[in-house]
C-alpha cells in the first residue's frame, strides 16, 4: 500500500529533514492521510446507525406534531377517547391499543409458558442428540416470514377455532387466531433467549444441588431458574415488545376496522394493522390520514423502545455475576 509513503515521498526539504531525523524520534507516529481517510469513512459507517435513530425520531415526531396541530385533533382526544374513525374526525387511539394489547396478551399466553418449558427442556433435560434435532426446528420456526404465519392464522387457526367454539361465536377475522399464531411465531425467540440465560448459569451451582440430593426438577426450578432470572425477564420483555410491533399476522387475520372490544373472538384492528391497511391504499401526503399514521407509529415506537430499554436495564442491574 502506497498511502503511507506520500509524506516521505513528497520531497520537500521539511519532509526529507524529518525523514532523516527519524532516529532521533523513533517513537513519533508518522502521519498517514490514507489511513485517516479510511478510518473516517469507517467511523461514518458507524455513525449511520445514529442517523437512523435520529431519522426515525425526527420523521415520527414532525408528522405527529403536524397531526396534533390540526384543529380537528387534540392530544387529550387522542389519548382518552375510544373511537377511531378518521372519516368523521374521531381520533381516539384506544380501540387500536386495546386490540394490540389483546393480541399481544394471547401471544404471551402461548409463547411464555411454552418458550420457557422448551428452554428448560433443551438446557436441563435433553440429550445432545435430542438438542441437535430440536434446535434446528426452532430455528426454522424463527426463520419463517411473518406473512406465512398470517396465512397460517387465516387458513388453519381461524377454521380450527371456529370448529371448536362454533362459527357463530368466532368471527372470520378475530384477534384470538392472530394472537395464538403470533405466540407460535414468538416461541422460538423466547426459548432461544431463555436457553442462553439458563446455560449461562455455572455447572458448579447445579452440581452442588445434586450433591445435596436434589432431583433434576428441583435443580432446574429452584437453582437454575432463580439464578437466570434477569436473563429470563429480559426475554419476556423483548417478546412483549416483538408482539406489539408484529404486523403481518394481525394485518391478515385480526380484522380490518378499529373495534373497541376485549372479546378475542371478534374482529379488531391493531396499531400496526391499521398502519398497514391505510398506507396500503393510495395515501395522499399531508392528509390527516397520513399524519395520523405517524402519530400511531410514534406511540408504537415509544412503547417498543421503552420495553427494550427496560429489558437492557434488567439485564444490567439484576444479573448475577459468577466468578
Amino acid at each position: 500500500m502506497g498511502v503511507g509513503m506520500t509524506a516521505a515521498a513528497a520531497g520537500t526539504p521539511e519532509a526529507r529533514a524529518s525523514h532523516e531525523a527519524r532516529p532521533a524520534h523513533p517513537l513519533q507516529r508518522r502521519r498517514r492521510p490514507g489511513e485517516a481517510l479510511i478510518q473516517g469513512f469507517l467511523a461514518f459507517c458507524g455513525v449511520i446507525s445514529i442517523f437512523t435513530t435520529l431519522g426515525i425520531v425526527f420523521v415520527l415526531g414532525r408528522e405527529s406534531l403536524l397531526f396534533f396541530s390540526k384543529p380537528e385533533v387534540t392530544l387529550a382526544e387522542f389519548l382518552l377517547t375510544t373511537h377511531w374513525q378518521p372519516a368523521v374526525g374521531e381520533f381516539g387511539i384506544w380501540p387500536l391499543v386495546s386490540a394490540t394489547v389483546l393480541t399481544s396478551l394471547m401471544a404471551m399466553l402461548v409463547a411464555l409458558p411454552l418458550g420457557l418449558a422448551v428452554a428448560i427442556y433443551l438446557s436441563e433435560y435433553a440429550s445432545a442428540r435430542a438438542r441437535n434435532l430440536l434446535k434446528p426446528i426452532m430455528e426454522v420456526l424463527a426463520g419463517i416470514p411473518t406473512v406465512v404465519y398470517g396465512y397460517f392464522a387465516l387458513t388453519f387457526m381461524t377454521p380450527t377455532l371456529r370448529t371448536i367454539f362454533g362459527a357463530n361465536v368466532v368471527e372470520i377475522y378475530n384477534t384470538a387466531s392472530a394472537g395464538l399464531v403470533m405466540g407460535i411465531l414468538i416461541l422460538p425467540l423466547v426459548s432461544s433467549m431463555s436457553e442462553d440465560a439458563l446455560s449461562a448459569v455455572p455447572r458448579s451451582l447445579r452440581e452442588a444441588a445434586y450433591g445435596l440430593g436434589a432431583t433434576r426438577l428441583e435443580v432446574a426450578l429452584k437453582i437454575v431458574l432463580p439464578a437466570a432470572l434477569s436473563g429470563l425477564a429480559a426475554a419476556v420483555i423483548v417478546a412483549i415488545s416483538r408482539a406489539i410491533g408484529e404486523t403481518m399476522i394481525v394485518a391478515i387475520a385480526a380484522g380490518a376496522g378499529p373495534n373497541f372490544t376485549l372479546n378475542p373472538f371478534k374482529a379488531a384492528e391493531t396499531m400496526t394493522g391499521h398502519i398497514v391497511r391505510i398506507s396500503g391504499g393510495d395515501l395522499s401526503y399531508d392528509s390527516l390520514d397520513y399524519d395520523s399514521l405517524f402519530a400511531i407509529g410514534m406511540l408504537l415506537f415509544l412503547m417498543t423502545l421503552g420495553l427494550n430499554l427496560i429489558s437492557q436495564r434488567v439485564v444490567r442491574r439484576f444479573r448475577e455475576v459468577y466468578e
Binding site: I56, E63, E246, L300, F301, N308, L309
Partner: peptide, 25 residues
C-alpha cells in the same frame, strides 16, 4: 457506547417503523 447501545435498540425497532421512515425519507 452510544453507538453500541443505539445499534442494540435499533435491532428491536418494529419493521413497520422502518417502513414509515422509508416512506418519509
Amino acid at each position: 457506547r452510544l453507538i453500541r447501545t443505539n445499534i442494540t435498540n435499533l435491532a428491536g425497532v418494529p419493521s413497520i417503523i422502518y417502513g414509515m421512515l422509508g416512506l418519509a425519507i
